[in-house]
Structure formats: structure tokens, C-alpha cells
Design a protein around this nucleic acid. Structure first.
Lengths: 169, 169
DNA sequence: CTGATTTTTTGACATTCGTCAAAAGTAAAG
DNA sequence: CTTTACTTTTGACGAATGTCAAAAAATCAG
């Protein structure tokens, strides 16, 4: 964090604020200091949450960042949030000037990859309830801040199913 | 490929050969010149295919490579295959000597990430049949070389379901 | 507070896919 | 060939989750 301090900007967002709107290129990566952000997109008219980020978590419009295209994703603050913004272009030139940090950047990218592998395996082997329990385990307070619908779409189930899961304990 | 030629070794494997056995650390990354490899693991006693790699594709025991732990994954040749092996330790020191290549390595890692995002979305939104059609679309000849069971576990469905999907066109 | 809006819950029913068991088909070994 | 092992198909049934509709509960604005 300190190493990258020079290219990090502090920003505050209000609950509900749209930090990045889909269909535009997004050059920033966001690191959450406090609050909650989510990235989401629309699939057949439905709002699908792709990712949640809480304290020390990162979010970005991955497709746009990595391929420099317009993004399918939007990013939104679900609570009032303190966020560090890193411009991806600045990051690239910062890394170019400090090649020793490239290794770190790669390691981060690889860790994110392994996280995704885990999420994919969850989809392959776990029931809706088990996936929900895992999520609660990882983010115990998530239900206090995030609506049922957002959680359900993240887990790949309907709101109704999640409601039933929750009330059958 | 040429850039890394110095640390790539050509190897041949016979159909059915186990290239890497699970529960051991795997220091190699494999790039397929011809043939097919798969990585797989056991989940509740069932053989689950995690990944297929055909021409120019890569496989590795990702968990072991990236975290230097014993791997859950095994790697197997499904056909006689010509493979390039890259030792991960050599790769790391090669990159350390040629920091300008770190950027490339990071880009590769990021592309693999986006591939996984796509696969995850498949699990979230596509029916078993749609996932099968996507796979066929990407690897039209896969059915000629890979057994039904391996394909089914890769898609996250049972062999029986895949058999029905296939015979209902 | 109070009415309006949004979110969550509940119900009835449909669909997809899994499970278990057995039959049919294919490949491998003697 | 022919026997044996493995792979794929088929059938009957059940479980998990989706869909649509409406009721209940919570939240928000005035």
C-alpha cells in the first residue's frame, strides 16, 4: 500500500453512488478502506452482482481494465465508503518505472485467479445453501449491508430461493 | 515462445500417461504442442476434470505452482502428446533476470483470469446443454478424444445427463 | 406519524438435473 | 474370435431450484 501511495487517491462515496457506469471504459481500480462496493452487470434485464469488496478488498471493471474496452460492469457503493482509487494507466507506467514491482503485481493477479477457482468450484459442487453459508463465513456482516437480491444474484440463485434458505435454519 | 525457448524442454507422453500425480509438489507448467492433456482431482471419490489443454494451451497444477504446496491436481495425457515443460523455478529466475518479461507474465495471468470469469458465468447462467454446446464450439473435436465422463465432470454434470443431452438433438 | 415505495416472504407448480440400477455397446486381452 | 472390462445409453423416480403471483414486512419521504 505504502509503495503505491504515490498513485493512490482517496475518494469518498455515498451509499448508492454509482462509481463507474457500464458501457464506458474504466481506467481505475478501487481499493476499499471502509464501506462496501459491488460490481454488477445486466444479464437479460436482471441486475447481477459479480463481486463484493469490503475492507482491503479490490474491485474493478476487470474486462475494461485488462482489455481497455468499454465495460459491461458498473460499480456501486452499497454504503458510504472510503476508497482508494488507482488509475490503471498510472499503475502501468509506475510498474514500468519500477520493474521490481511487476512481480508483486503478477502475484496479486495470481491470487485473484485462485480466488476465482474457488468460486467456480463452489458453483460446481455446493448447493445454494452451502454457498450462502460460505459467503456468510467469509463476510459475516454482509446481510446487514447488502440486500437479499444482490446476494442471491452473486450466488447464482433467485431471491426467493435465498429467502427460503435463510428462513429454514 | 521463442523468448522462453531457453527454459522450455520438449517431452513426449503416451496416451493415458500420468504427467504429474496429485499430493506432490508440481514445479512445472506444461504447454501443449500436440495431443491433449487434462488436469483433474478427486472430489468425494469422483474423478473431476478441472481443465483441458489442447494445442498451444497450458496446464499446470495451479495450486501447487502458485503456492508451492502439494497439489490436489493430477495431470494426464489423454492422447499421445508433444509437450513443452517449463520449470516454474526456472521461470521465476528467468523473469528475475529479464524484468521486462514480468509484464508479459502478468498479462498472461490476467488473460487466464478472464477465461475463468467466462467459465464461472457459464456455470451461473447456462444450462447443461448450453455449456456443452459452448465447449463443442471451442473444441469441436473434443468428443473424439475425450471420454464422456471427463467432459461431464468438467461441465459440472453427470455422465447420464450428458449422454441425454447429446442424444436429444 | 402515515402513506408510498421497496424489499422480503410465502405458496403452488414446473423444470432441470441427480441418483440408482440395468441394459447395450465398444474396446482390450488372451 | 471370444471373453472380459470399460464406456455409454436408457428408464424410473426424487430432490433442488426456478417461475409467477400475491401477501407481508421494512424503509423512506413528506
Amino acid at each position: 500500500m505504502d509503495t503505491f501511495a504515490g498513485i493512490l487517491t482517496s475518494v469518498s462515496y455515498r451509499r448508492g453512488a454509482i462509481i463507474h457506469a457500464s458501457n464506458t471504459t474504466c481506467n481505475s481500480l478501487f481499493i476499499v478502506k471502509s464501506g462496501i462496493l459491488r460490481s454488477y452487470y445486466f444479464k437479460d434485464g436482471k441486475d447481477i452482482t459479480a463481486h463484493f469488496a469490503m475492507r482491503y478488498g479490490m474491485v474493478g471493471a476487470v474486462d475494461s481494465l485488462l482489455r481497455q474496452t468499454k465495460s459491461r460492469y458498473s460499480i456501486q457503493a452499497l454504503e458510504n465508503s472510503e476508497v482508494l482509487r488507482m488509475d490503471y494507466g498510472e499503475m502501468e507506467s509506475f510498474l514500468a518505472k519500477n520493474p521490481s514491482l511487476e512481480r508483486l503485481a503478477r502475484k496479486v493477479s495470481q491470487e485473484l485467479y485462485l480466488d476465482l477457482v474457488e468460486r467456480l468450484e463452489g458453483m460446481l459442487f455446493l448447493s445454494a445453501k452451502e454457498r450462502y453459508d460460505h459467503l456468510l463465513n467469509r463476510y459475516p456482516q454482509i446481510t446487514q449491508y447488502v440486500g437479499l437480491g444482490h446476494i442471491a444474484s452473486y450466488l447464482g440463485i433467485t431471491q426467493e430461493t435465498l429467502s427460503r434458505i435463510r428462513n429454514s435454519t
